[in-house]
Design a protein around this nucleic acid. Structure first.
Length: 788
RNA sequence: GCGCCAGUGGCGGAAUGGUAGACGCACUGGUUUUAGGUACCAGCGGGCAACCGUGGGGGUUCAAGUCCCUCCUGGCGCACCA
């Protein structure tokens, strides 16, 4: 059986237009796909559309159209733009997540997840984006603002669906170690996001009340230094002690704090008992205690924690040192010897942690605990244009997840979109139904799934996009994981973490053999372009010219200043349109420029000179092959062999900029030597190697020379014997510094060669009046002569 | 603040511990062309030279852009995570 290679570029949102970033992304993948096809692999290289999501709803309201019409039209126009790029894609695998034949299977997976206990509903304090009028996942809140709208996120209690990604926290963390072909950076970001910390959960009883509260800490060794307790304002005990109005007031006071590091506390009437000492600890509500981490409560040990120290200073709370250190060093959070702690004195930090946890467990005060920053994934979105959640509700408030036989729940087309709230809520005919099982009146869930659910399994659906089941288990086991997944680093956490979770959850539900969806992840760099500005506005680079040494706007003659090269964006007017570039320079020049000037994982600066020189090398190659003489010599054969080898190596490493350098060097040599190849095996080798990068050019020349299609050939084997060069320009160093080279052959005899070396002028001069102490000969590599 | 990554000509970038600057761009001179956003030839780190040069300082090594320590600068990510 052929070996398989699954190459995938992150599928686009159908905004209507492809941009140069897409082009770079898809060209990188396409080079790989074409190479693997020539190698004879069974290549999967699909393309589809991440087609649900808010922009469609916003556009529908703005342009008086329908999200579906808008989306389908965009898909059509983007598809035709993509086809102009002539990418080697499996269009028969195409899918769009907004189509019923995609999302109906997603509803099935939802049922599976529910039955497996991995989807559940609960009241939750959620992130509410007031502009988009929807809930956001924790991952979608950046600096307290919505990831799309930038609006400050509000906290709201809503009944929401969640996926239990936390069940997989440990595995998601551990399996990162096995992803050797992922960028370290992405793995680090995921590790930080999962945020595992080990410590203890300690129980503090509230004096005079029957109850107690739990606190998570990573520093149980500092328990004897505890001098206060602080709670998040959302802690349930606060809810019992204060009225809603009081809580509201505190929250709004906290919200008004401008300095984010400012510590504020509100003392509560209760006191906690220190679990080990006969001592009362005051209890505060504090603004710096997070409600969504640990237990939403801390014990404060001011001597050994920066935040607790600030707080204690401000509210005159005692500071008790329990780790040996100089008073000047306070707060000291490092390692040290424990003091002032009856049963821990003299121990190191780690020993003290172990001992105190044992003691807690024996005395039922607390226990060892592992805490994750990762929360369960909230997937409910109060929007129309998404996958309906297959759940119905009864009048008594109970609900039922539909059976697979009752699917799909089809998203209705006839909705009234006005931008206020969820259009599905207003669609009574769709919402209301008689439950076939109970004959009761029921109402459909009107929330739809986060679109990150859609993209969490699309790479699986590509394998069987027309199957009437979500996927075929045999095909999943055969074709997954994706061998090379190419896309932007902006998905380092959200999409990639969710997909990893889905793969593992589906593995457990369907007994699949695949645990990780993406074997290799390659994150391509963005495309930048010079920016220009006049007094009031950005100016398009094409409108800028030099006049009398000054940059001017050719439309108004106004002076223009040049800014840095920045990511292409419409607002900065520094975009170039793929259509225009393709028309002016052709597909191959565009392709080779996308990989020319910098490594594919770094930024690429768009320049007019760059795209022009890409066009020039294509013309040069074409001209070269117009000479049909055959004047091959041994050196040419060796050279070609060498560059075939290099090009292959560099394609496999994604060192595509080096591939381009290989092509230039090869043709520089061929042209310089005036050797022509004609209809020869050597021509064939070169053209096949060029094919992944320059498919149009190489297939045209190939067909002219050999009268058959280049795709019917296979990638040439490299004759390793030809790579072995016998002649050698051996470098000579004196005291480790380069002096000169000497022509010789591999396998030279050191003694014989040294005689000739000492006769070299440069060597003679440098060695005069000096005594040779020793000679280092690294055979066939270098000779280093050491003097006194 | 914490964590990653990176500092090499005018610019983008090459260099399994072994001739630093491959390849491209820009630039300079020349040839062809009515003309050229074309093509071709030559040059292109600094210095007249010996030599000196990979952010600074130390170290390991016969040999360091590459390995180790330390500092500086820039970028990215996280950020009151108990």
């Amino acid at each position: 059986m052929k070996s398989k290679t699954y190459i995938l570029e992150m599928f686009p949102y159908p905004s209507g237009n492809i941009h140069m970033g897409h082009v770079r992304n898809y060209v990188i993948g396409d080079i790989s796909a074409r190479y693997h096809k020539l190698k004879g692999d069974e290549v999967v290289h699909p393309m589809g559309w991440d087609a649900f999501g808010l922009p469609a709803e916003n556009a529908a309201i703005q342009f008086d159209t329908h999200p579906q019409d808008w989306t389908l039209k965009n898909i059509e126009s983007m598809k035709s733009q993509l086809q102009k790029l002539d990418l080697d894609l499996d269009w028969d695998r195409e899918l769009a997540t907004c189509n019923e034949d995609y999302y109906r299977h997603q509803q099935e997976l939802f049922v599976d997840l529910f039955n497996a206990g991995l989807a559940y509903k609960k009241d939750a304090l959620v992130n509410w984006d007031p502009v988009d009028q929807t809930v956001l996942a924790n991952e979608q809140v950046i600096d307290g603002k919505g990831w799309r709208t930038g609006a400050p996120v509000e906290k709201k209690v809503l009944s929401q669906w969640f996926f239990k990604i936390t069940d997989y926290a440990e595995e998601l963390l551990n399996d990162l170690d096995g992803l050797s072909l992922w960028p370290e950076k992405v793995k680090t970001m995921q590790r930080n996001w999962i945020g595992k910390s080990t410590g203890a959960e300690i129980n503090f009883s509230i004096i005079g009340a029957g109850n107690s509260l739990n606190i998570f800490t990573t520093r149980p060794d500092t328990i004897y230094g505890a001098t206060f307790i602080a709670l998040s304002v959302n802690h349930k005990i606060v809810n019992q002690l204060l009225s809603q109005d009081e809580i509201k007031k505190i929250k709004s006071d906290f919200d008004k704090i401008i300095d984010e590091k400012d510590k504020r506390g509100i003392p509560l009437k209760i006191k906690c008992k220190h679990p080990l000492l006969d001592k009362e600890l005051p209890v505060y509500i504090a603004n710096f205690v997070l409600d969504n981490y640990g237990e939403g409560a801390i014990f404060g040990c001011p001597a050994h924690d920066d935040r607790d120290y600030d707080f204690a200073q401000k509210y005159s709370i005692p500071i008790i040192k329990v780790i040996e250190c100089d008073d000047k060093e306070l707060p000291f959070s490092g390692d040290g010897i424990v003091i002032n702690s009856p049963i821990l004195d003299g121990l190191s930090k780690n020993d003290a942690i172990n001992k105190i946890i044992n003691y807690f467990e024996k005395n039922k005060i607390g226990k060892k605990s592992i805490n994750y920053k990762l929360r369960d994934w909230g997937v409910s979105r109060q929007r129309y244009w998404g996958c309906p959640i297959p759940v119905i509700y009864y009048d008594d408030g109970s609900y039922r997840v539909l059976d697979k036989s009752e699917l799909p729940v089809v998203l209705p087309y006839d909705v009234n979109l006005n931008g206020k709230g969820n259009a599905l809520l207003g669609h009574e005919n769709w919402r209301k139904l008689i439950c076939p099982k109970t004959n009761q009146t029921a109402y459909r869930e009107t929330d739809t799934l986060d679109t990150f659910v859609d993209s969490s399994w699309y790479y699986i659906r590509f394998l069987n996009n027309k199957n009437n089941k979500p996927f075929d288990i045999n095909d999943v086991n055969r074709f997954l994981p994706v061998d090379k997944y190419i896309g932007g680093i902006e998905h380092a956490i959200l999409h990639l973490l969710y997909s990893r979770f889905f793969m593992k959850a589906l593995r457990d539900i369907y007994k699949l053999n695949v645990s990780e969806p993406f074997k290799q992840l390659f994150t391509q760099g963005m495309i930048t372009h010079k920016t220009y500005k006049n007094d009031t506005d950005w100016v398009m680079p094409r409108d800028v010219a030099i006049k009398e040494g000054n940059l001017i706007d050719i439309r108004s003659q106004a002076l223009v200043t040049e800014g840095p090269s920045e990511k292409m964006s419409k607002s900065k007017k520094n975009v170039v349109e793929p259509d225009e570039i393709l028309d002016n320079y052709g597909i191959d020049a565009t392709r080779i420029f996308m990989i020319s000037d910098s490594p594919p994982d770094r930024e690429l600066e768009w320049t007019d000179e760059g795209i022009q020189s890409s066009k020039n090398i294509i013309n040069r190659i074409e001209r070269y092959f117009q000479n049909r003489q055959t004047t091959i010599n041994d050196e040419t054969i060796k050279n070609v062999e060498k560059y075939v080898f290099e090009i292959e190596k560099n394609i496999l490493n994604f060192s595509l900029n080096k591939c381009v350098a290989n092509i230039y060097t090869l043709f520089n040599k061929l042209e310089k030597s005036k050797v022509y190849l004609g209809e020869n095996k050597i021509s064939e080798k070169i053209l096949i190697c060029l094919f992944p990068i320059l498919p149009r050019l190489s297939s045209k020349i190939y067909e002219n020379l050999f009268h058959k299609e280049i795709v019917t050939t296979t990638w040439p084997d490299v004759d390793k014997n030809l790579l072995l060069e016998n002649k050698l320009e051996l470098p000579i160093q004196i005291n480790g510094k380069f002096s000169s080279t000497i022509s010789t052959k591999k396998g030279y005899k050191e003694d014989n060669l040294l005689k000739a070396v000492y006769e070299l002028d440069k060597v003679k001069n440098r060695l005069s009046n000096k005594k040779i102490r020793k000679v280092i000969n690294v055979q066939d590599k270098i000779i280093n002569i050491i003097t006194d």
